[in-house]
């Protein structure tokens, strides 16, 4: 299966390991992965801050870059959702409207792609440890992907899964919210950190690096020794 990786800008610049794990995992499952070089960012930071005009060129770029791809797969529910928002944004654009729709229709979050498109529920991973999972807001509420990550995690050998209390609460990231309203963000993430601690898990995982960066950033600051891994890193452990 030919897959174009939508790596996300955060992974490109801040956490290459997540990108590597995603590529290796998809290749292990038999995909032929390419990474269209022109991709940069889905535009979410400016779009959600109210800077639509500043976002249009970034979005058009993404639409063009992935025009020839069969499937577009990304290790971030939130960024993939953003691609799904494009058709609404370009609905009155005769050129980019249809192209945006085509992109949205072939774009999937990583675990969603593995379970729903490839039909795989066990990726053959082994990971020893007690793990809890934070379901990120845009992935669950807007993209509507709830079960695939859980299905995959539960089939990882050696992995002991423990549910995160009040898991559906936002982690307090919110894109530029975290730098505009840092104080509120801190309070929200503190409650999330308390819940993570309550589980007794050694690892926290999730399918959105931005949220994980937020929670781990706070845990590191507070000296909470829970390790944070993106779900691709766990699913790529063998």
């Amino acid at each position: 299966m030919k897959v174009s990786l939508f790596g996300t800008c955060l992974v490109d610049v801040l956490k290459a390991d997540i990108g590597k794990a995603t590529v290796e995992l998809l290749e292990h499952l038999g995909c032929e992965v390419d990474y269209p070089e022109g991709q940069i960012c889905c535009g979410q930071p400016t779009y959600n801050s109210g800077y639509l005009n500043e976002t249009i060129p970034a979005m058009k770029r993404m639409i063009d870059v992935f025009a020839d791809s069969k499937y577009v797969v990304g290790p971030s529910g939130s960024c993939v959702y953003m691609l799904h928002e494009y058709p609404h944004i370009f609905k009155d654009d005769p050129v980019y409207g249809p192209k945006a729709k085509a992109l949205a229709e072939k774009s999937y979050e990583l675990t969603q792609f593995i379970v729903e498109v490839m039909g795989i529920e066990d990726v053959g991973a082994t990971f020893n440890g007690k793990v809890t999972y934070h379901p990120s807001c845009h992935m669950t509420r807007l993209l509507g992907v709830k079960n695939p990550p859980l299905t995959l995690l539960k089939n990882v050998k050696g992995l002991e899964f423990t549910e995160l209390p009040q898991k559906e609460y936002c982690c307090g990231f919110g894109g530029t919210f975290s730098v505009k309203m840092g104080r509120i963000s801190e309070k929200i993430v503190d409650e999330k950190v308390e819940h993570v601690k309550e589980t007794g898990a050694e690892y926290l995982t999730g399918a959105d690096y931005s949220c994980l960066m937020n929670i781990s950033g706070r845990m590191e600051r507070l000296g909470v020794p829970v390790k944070v891994l993106h779900i691709a890193q766990i699913l790529n452990s063998r």
Binding site: L5, G7, V11, D12, V13, L14, K15, A16, G19, K20, V23, Y35, E37, S178, G182, R183, S185, E186, V189, M213, N214, S216, G217, R218, E220, R221
Partner: peptide
Amino acid sequence: YKDMPKPNKERFRDWF
């Protein structure tokens, strides 16, 4: 309030 990871020495796209 939070620590921030240091940028990659090698970007993901260069690794790819």
